[in-house]
């Protein structure tokens, strides 16, 4: 069956067809490109919510609960993409996010897809922007993305989501940690999960302190101070309040025009990423050619620097 027909089925609510489209996006190639070509013009209206935080912080459970809260408010269905790491050694993966999402997993109108990182770093899989586009194009709104458990610098989600939620737990670190961690600069909303545990109020205070230190708003620019929510995801407490904040952030983004800016930036990053990918592919292909191998030999015999060899390999593209 050709891709446009599969797409039509998916738009008509055929979940198996949507499942296949997401597989095509993950595989890339001709079919993946076709899916992007069809979905891009009609996508762009769904609210993309990203969740990130350390492994074991409760991201999957919160994602499931949040999807349930969103489902009550949304008529269009909730899309979830949950990402887990691929083994760097074998390429295999254990995708275990569905077991934390009992609340939503069988609800009509909720679509949950597990995705392995397949070698990409930064907490997302390469196929994530494409998967968001497809879910958006077939009508899911919001689309919730759960990243792999990340530490300090794996913050790709912020370039991909409209609203980024950072989940921490009691005892995760002090104010210094909060200040240096790249994670915190990208948060639109903070969640202190496992809030029933000792140290929850300390974690909250450290976050407040960090936000105070960073509070030098440009009076000419709209500012959003990230709210800090306390949740216990396992029993659902705090989740409704979290969803309210997600909705509030969405309104703020729209009213201030920030949404448009973020999305334009997202498109730009994605296009640049594709440029890197295509140029890299071309470069590697040329490196295998007779000319490329001759240049490599010169580098290996120290006649030519690696940089000079690379420049010569791509000389025709670098001229202008």
């Amino acid at each position: 069956m050709p891709v446009p027909d599969v797409f039509e089925l998916a738009r008509n609510g055929e979940r198996r067809a949507l499942g296949r489209l997401l597989t095509l996006v993950e595989r890339g190639g001709v079919n993946g490109d076709k899916v992007a070509e069809i979905s891009h013009p009609i996508a762009g209206s769904s609210h993309v919510v990203g969740l990130t935080g350390a492994p074991g912080a409760g991201k999957s459970t919160i994602t499931g609960r949040l999807a349930a809260a969103a489902g009550l408010a949304s008529e269009s269905g909730v899309g979830v993409v949950a990402i887990d790491p691929s083994s760097p050694i074998t390429g295999g993966a254990i995708l275990g996010d569905r077991i934390r999402m009992d609340e939503v997993i069988d609800r009509e109108g909720t679509f949950v897809r597990s995705m392995a990182t397949r070698g990409s770093s930064g907490g997302l899989a390469l196929a994530v922007p494409g998967a968001i586009r497809v879910l958006d194009a077939v009508g899911y709104d919001p689309v919730i993305i759960e990243t792999v458990g990340v530490g300090q610098v794996e913050v790709d989600i912020a370039g991909t989501a409209d609203t980024t939620i950072v989940v921490v737990t009691p005892g995760w670190g002090d104010a210094v940690q909060a200040n240096k961690a790249g994670l915190l600069e990208v948060a639109d909303i903070f969640v202190v999960n496992k809030a029933e545990r000792p140290g929850a109020s300390d974690a909250r205070r450290d976050l407040e302190l960090m936000l105070d230190l960073g509070a030098h708003p440009d009076p000419n620019k709209p500012t959003w101070r990230a709210p800090i929510l306390m949740t216990t995801a396992t029993d659902g407490s705090g989740i409704d309040e979290l969803w309210d904040q997600v909705v509030a952030h969405r309104s703020w983004l729209t009213e201030t025009g920030e949404l448009l800016g973020r999305r334009q930036n997202r498109d730009r990053f994605e296009m640049l990423g594709r440029v890197d990918e295509l140029l890299g592919g071309l470069g590697r292909k040329r490196a295998e050619s007779e000319q490329g191998l001759a240049l490599l030999a010169d580098v290996q015999s120290r006649k030519l620097s690696p940089t000079a060899a690379a420049a010569e390999l791509l000389a025709d593209l670098l001229e202008s």
Binding site: R15, R16, L18, G19, R20, L22, T23, S86, S87, T90, G91, G92, A93, I94, L95, G96, R98, I99, I105, D106, F111, V112, R113, S114, A116
Partner: peptide, 27 residues
């Protein structure tokens, strides 16, 4: 996993309906 497979782990106490849902969504 060690053989390079992506395992969608659903764990215990599943129903045939849940498994079918997962099979469709996860392709």
């Amino acid at each position: 996993r060690d053989a390079g497979v992506e395992v969608i782990y659903l764990g215990i106490r599943q129903t045939t309906a849940t498994i079918i849902n997962a099979a469709e969504q996860e392709d």
